[in-house]
């Protein structure tokens, strides 16, 4: 079963005619995702991977019954696409775009809160429920159905961990990337709550990194969870004041070091893995 998406999720691709949008649409279709169409202003009436392209989300919804969207729009236009999806009642919006100005995301956040939409990302790899649906860009071949939920701020590190879990015969209920930006739509706690309520999920792997306090904010909730949570936090070596690739991965004003986070987790009695292979071991021990 997993969380947020299933076989019935009907996905619209915003930015479907772009290089990445069209490539990833093909990959999602191969995975089994129900892609119902796409949107690119000015390209309405054309087709990508045999899926109809519309000029707007509004027009797409007249012809399709999409309830989720994935955004592959360049950063200067991406928040406009998010607003368009919110205004048209899309329930789940997954924003892959990296490089959106933080002031734009600050304006999206309070608007999002007045709607019932959920935004995953931006700057995230998306969400995958093996054997059901994938919205985003995670490689198709790494997943294996099972009972471990994965939630992470990273992209490729998530792939490495999911791949390693699968190769060790530990399947996943759902894998979620919440994104590497400082202002994002969905937090660790939001996803942990969903995993806690999902009968298919028996344990969770949570991958954090330097910057901000999103990891620490999840500690109180993890302590109340009935399911084991294995955490892994990267960036121990990171010098202060430098952005480590992700816009959100920066130790600023002394806040957000990996060591601080690791110590806070250990103090709360939450398992912290030392390496990807250690995650596998800790997951095996916890089940």
């Amino acid at each position: 079963m997993g969380i947020l998406i299933d076989k019935n999720t009907r996905v619209l691709v915003q930015g479907i005619t772009g290089r990445e949008g069209s490539l990833q649409t093909g990959q999602m279709i191969d995975f089994g995702t129900n892609i119902v169409g796409g949107v690119t202003p000015g390209k309405g009436g054309s087709f990508v991977h045999e899926r109809p392209v519309f000029d707007s989300v509004n027009e797409a919804l007249k012809e399709t019954d999409a309830n989720a969207s994935v955004i592959f729009v360049p950063p200067q236009f991406a928040t406009d696409s998010i607003f368009e999806a919110i205004d048209n009642g899309i329930e789940l919006i997954v924003c892959i775009t990296e490089g959106i100005p933080i002031h734009d995301m600050m304006r999206v956040w309070p608007y999002l809160k007045t709607s019932s939409a959920r935004l995953l990302g931006p700057n995230c790899p998306g969400i995958t429920t093996p054997s059901a649906s994938k919205i985003g860009i995670m490689p198709n071949q790494i997943h294996k159905p099972g009972n471990i939920g994965v939630v992470s701020r990273s992209g490729t590190l998530t792939y490495e961990i999911v791949d390693m879990l699968s190769k060790n015969d530990i399947g996943q209920s759902t894998s979620v990337g919440i994104g590497g930006d400082p202002v994002n739509g969905t937090s660790f706690v939001d996803i942990l709550e969903l995993f806690e309520d999902d009968p298919e999920t028996h344990g969770v792997v949570m991958v954090g990194e330097i910057g901000g306090t999103a990891e620490e904010e999840s500690i109180e909730f993890i302590k109340q969870m009935s399911k084991p949570v294995i955490s892994y936090i990267v960036g121990v070596f990171a010098p202060p004041g430098k952005t480590m690739g992700h816009a959100g991965a920066i130790i600023s004003m002394g806040v957000g070091t990996a060591l601080e986070k690791i110590q806070a987790f250990e103090k709360a009695g939450i398992s912290v893995a030392k390496s990807p292979s250690d995650i596998v071991q800790l997951v095996k021990n916890s089940l």
Binding site: S154, L157, V207, G235, V236, M244, G245
Partner: peptide
Amino acid sequence: IVNGAGLAMATLDMIKQ
């Protein structure tokens, strides 16, 4: 040289370990 910020940070942590 790594693709992805998270994986890059993990790689550097591993080198230290």
